[in-house]
């Protein structure tokens, strides 16, 4: 049985009817037309679906939408402000950290959550912050470099 709930995504309120088992990822992609978070596995581990809930990175593929009322959700669509890219987005472009791009939005969101609490991270910390995100194209080096760039 679907139930209507209110979600706050990127500062906007959405009223959606969701099934008890619906995940945030499905609700965003199917109902809200927010396709930045990607499904890469649906069982946790690839990280393509990463978004922030109350400023913390989670896998949206395993976050039940029903549990999110009253929480602040941020997705890649909410990063750029007034057409200005977030420093992370800019750094990913500059450093050549984007290849096929399928992991990119999840990577940036994982990095975003990390940088909210970390001013001058070490390379090891950066790598730890994206340990839950797989990339098959880049070998991660330029991604790590981009996150370092954005931190500065």
């Amino acid at each position: 049985m679907k139930q209507v709930i209110n979600l706050e995504l990127n500062g906007e309120r959405y009223e959606v009817a969701v099934a008890p088992h619906a995940t945030l990822l499905e609700v965003m992609r199917r109902e809200l037309g927010l396709v930045g978070a990607k499904k890469g596995c649906d069982t946790g581990g690839c990280g393509c679906c990463t978004v922030l809930v109350d400023d913390r990175a989670v896998y949206s593929c395993m976050t039940y939408a029903m549990t999110l009322e009253g929480k602040k959700i941020t997705t890649i669509e909410g990063l750029a402000r007034d057409g200005k890219l977030d420093p992370l987005q800019q750094a990913f472009i500059e450093a050549g950290a984007v290849q096929c791009g399928y992991c990119t939005c999840g990577m940036i969101m994982a990095a975003k959550a990390f940088l909210l609490n970390s001013r001058s991270p070490t390379e090891a910390q950066i790598r730890q912050a994206i340990a839950g995100n797989l990339c098959r194209c880049t070998g991660y080096r330029k991604i790590v470099e981009a996150i370092g760039l954005a931190a500065r």
Partner: peptide
């Protein structure tokens, strides 16, 4: 050991 997304959830 767990990745941040798991730590958080």
């Amino acid at each position: 050991y767990p990745p941040p997304q798991i730590l958080n959830a």
